[in-house]
Amino acid sequence: MNIAKTDKPAPPGDTRPDSVRPGMTSTPTLDPERWVDDHGDYLFHYALSRLRDPVQAEDFVQEALLAALRSADRYQGRSTERTWLAGILKHKILDHFRKSGRETSFTDLEFYAGEEENTFRNELYPEHWNREMAPQEWADAGAALDREEFWRVFHRCSGKLPDRVARVFLLREVDNVSSEDICATLGISPNNLWVMLHRARLALRRCLEVNWFGADSPSEEGKP
């Protein structure tokens, strides 16, 4: 077994080398139970956000950890332990999508179609922004990403995306899977993929604006 690195950065002020910091294993070890403690939540969230089924998500985490254990001798330590485990989980989930994509029609082209129509309903200039729906300035967007409450809003908003749209969005935006690979994996046409990605972005952006960045969102004092 090669050197296992964890993702934990040194806390501020901790100048000890990785080898002596707790949680940073620099000696050859194989401790799958620690994987559950250190990366279990991360992997479970990863699987759940894509599969939307807690039982199935746990099954996939288990499968990924077992596969990691069986192939531990191939882990070179070039990436962090978490990245390695998440990579195995990602491939297991993609395989599952590939199989189920062939069995069912995957597109969800109706999602947000009506809302898109309303967003660009403009009496004076057809197909231009509706005055009430036009994007507002997002003040301090960078700082928002550091706030716990923002992430709660973000997860609530992304949780509202229909399963298929969310799956496509996460594959593209989080897993960085290319459009061609998503189409091949899910058995959909590029045009259908772009429509779903576009609607997912429209819906998520609007949801974040209404619930976090917009004028009607909680006031600055109200934000934790």
Binding site: V36, D41, H45, Y46, S49, L145, H155, S158
Partner: peptide
């Protein structure tokens, strides 16, 4: 959309408390 992309990238590292094992 760029901010949304950045947020989506970061979202995996910020799992909501409700989705913990």
């Amino acid at each position: 959309l760029e901010i949304l992309r950045e947020a989506a990238h970061g979202s995996t590292d910020r799992p909501p408390p409700t989705t913990r094992l």
